[in-house]
Computed example of a mutant assay.
Amino acid sequence: MSQLNLAVVVGSLRKESFNRQFAEALVKLLPADVKPHFIRIDDLPLYNQDSDGAPPVPAVKRLRDEVAAAHGVLFVTPEYNRSIPGVLKNAIDQASRPWGQSKWAGKPAAVCGMSVGAIGTSMAQAHLRNVLAYLDMPLLGQPEMYFQWKEGVIVNGAIGPASHDLAQKFMTAVVAWVRRHQA
C-alpha cells in the first residue's frame, strides 16, 4: 500500500488545548504507512470574499496547498457555545474559496473531539458534519467518537488504557475510510 498523507486540523488555538493533546495522542495509533500532518490555522486572516480575486496571502496559500496535498482529513474539534470554534470555520472557509476552487472537495474526512462536558463535542461535531457535507467531503459515519476530558484519557501523551480500544477502532476506521476514497 502507498503512504497516506492525513491532514489533522485541530479547532483550538489554546496552548494547553485538550483537543491538541487528544490529536497528538490519536496520531500515535496510526500505522507506519500513514503520515499525519498537522495543519496550522492560527495565522490565517479572517475570510473576506473581497479577497477571492487576489492572490492569497502566504498563510492562506500554505493552507490550501496542504489541504490539496492530503489524501484525507481528520478534524479534531472542541465545542464552543454548542458549535465549532470560529477559527476552525475560518480555516474551512479559507480553503473552500474562491467559489468552485475548494481544496476540501472530495477529501474523505473524519470528525472527533474532546470537551470537559458530559456530552463531549456532540453538537460541534453535528455542525461540522453539516458544513463538511456541503463541501462534498465523504464523511466517516461510524464509529463516532465523543470524548469527555477527564483524568486517565491521555496518559503520558498517549491514549489511556480505558479509552485505547475505542480510539484504536476509530483510527483504524479513519485509515480504511481514506484508503477507500483514495483517487
Rank of each mutant, 00 (worst) to 15 (best):
40 R>I: 00
14 R>T: 07
44 L>D: 00
30 L>H: 08
35 K>D: 00
58 P>E: 12
55 P>F: 11
10 V>D: 07
40 R>L: 00
12 S>Q: 02
60 V>W: 04
49 Q>I: 04
18 F>Q: 13
58 P>D: 10
19 N>P: 14
51 S>D: 04
56 P>N: 10
57 V>C: 11
49 Q>G: 11
41 I>H: 08
8 V>D: 05
30 L>F: 08
29 L>E: 10
33 D>A: 15
29 L>T: 06
51 S>P: 01
38 F>D: 11
30 L>T: 05
37 H>R: 14
6 L>R: 10
16 E>P: 05
35 K>G: 03
24 E>Y: 12
25 A>L: 10
21 Q>D: 10
32 A>S: 12
26 L>V: 05
48 N>H: 15
19 N>D: 09
48 N>E: 00
38 F>W: 09
56 P>W: 09
11 G>R: 00
35 K>A: 12
44 L>M: 03
21 Q>E: 08
18 F>P: 03
16 E>V: 03
15 K>W: 05
38 F>N: 06
54 A>R: 12
13 L>W: 01
36 P>A: 02
21 Q>R: 15
34 V>R: 15
42 D>N: 11
6 L>D: 05
45 P>I: 07
21 Q>S: 07
18 F>I: 09
38 F>E: 08
49 Q>D: 00
23 A>K: 08
18 F>N: 12
38 F>M: 08
42 D>F: 03
17 S>L: 10
34 V>F: 14
9 V>R: 06
49 Q>M: 12
11 G>Y: 04
52 D>T: 13
56 P>Q: 13
43 D>W: 07
58 P>Q: 13
9 V>S: 08
37 H>L: 01
46 L>H: 12
54 A>I: 09
47 Y>K: 11
33 D>Q: 07
32 A>W: 07
37 H>T: 06
36 P>N: 11
55 P>Q: 09
7 A>H: 12
8 V>P: 02
46 L>F: 15
24 E>P: 02
25 A>M: 10
35 K>I: 04
50 D>A: 08
12 S>R: 05
39 I>D: 02
43 D>T: 10
28 K>P: 04
50 D>M: 13
12 S>I: 13
49 Q>K: 13
33 D>K: 14
41 I>D: 00
40 R>A: 02
14 R>S: 06
49 Q>C: 01
34 V>W: 15
13 L>Q: 00
50 D>Q: 14
27 V>Q: 08
28 K>G: 01
51 S>I: 09
44 L>E: 00
56 P>Y: 10
21 Q>C: 03
49 Q>E: 05
59 A>V: 03
49 Q>P: 01
33 D>F: 15
19 N>V: 12
7 A>G: 03
48 N>V: 04
45 P>T: 09
34 V>H: 14
26 L>R: 06
21 Q>G: 13
9 V>I: 15
57 V>Y: 09
45 P>A: 07
36 P>E: 06
32 A>N: 07
35 K>Y: 03
25 A>R: 14
42 D>Q: 07
37 H>I: 02
55 P>Y: 10
9 V>K: 13
57 V>A: 14
28 K>M: 00
44 L>V: 05
8 V>E: 03
9 V>P: 04
15 K>T: 03
14 R>H: 06
20 R>L: 13
22 F>P: 11
35 K>M: 11
